[in-house]
């Protein structure tokens, strides 16, 4: 699998990552090498093998649908980059 600069840009956009222009060729090489390396997985027959998502194949535990968390808004917002009146601020989204 050989990725080029455009692939790196497309993947970086999907992951919402800014990649410096100068670093893109190196990412293209490294990511291609890693994908080549994992190609080995194709050498084994996995027909009729169930995918394993979790070591003990456990299902999600359920609990009563009750409130368990207390409101700690001020505490949690103290470490936020920008807040106002209890709201997180981001650049304008709707014109």
């Amino acid at each position: 699998m050989s990725l080029d600069k455009n692939d790196v840009e497309r993947i970086a956009h999907l992951a919402r990552l800014q990649i410096d222009e100068a670093d893109k060729p190196e990412y293209a090489t490294n990511l291609s090498n890693i994908l080549d390396f994992v190609e080995q997985l194709g050498t084994v027959d996995t027909e009729n093998v169930d995918p394993m998502a979790h070591p003990s194949d456990a299902t999600q535990r359920l609990r009563e649908d009750v409130v368990t968390e207390t409101n700690q808004r001020e505490r949690f917002q103290k470490i936020a980059p920008q807040v106002e009146n209890g709201l997180y601020l981001v650049p304008k989204v709707i014109e």
């Binding site: 970086a12 956009h13 990552l17 981001v90």
Partner: peptide
């Protein structure tokens, strides 16, 4: 905001693994 915060905040190996 997303792209630059993440691009600046993460190092090269973390970015590689996120992209893979």
């Amino acid at each position: 905001l997303y792209k630059r915060s993440r691009g600046e905040g993460f190092g090269a190996e973390v970015k590689r693994r996120i992209m893979i």
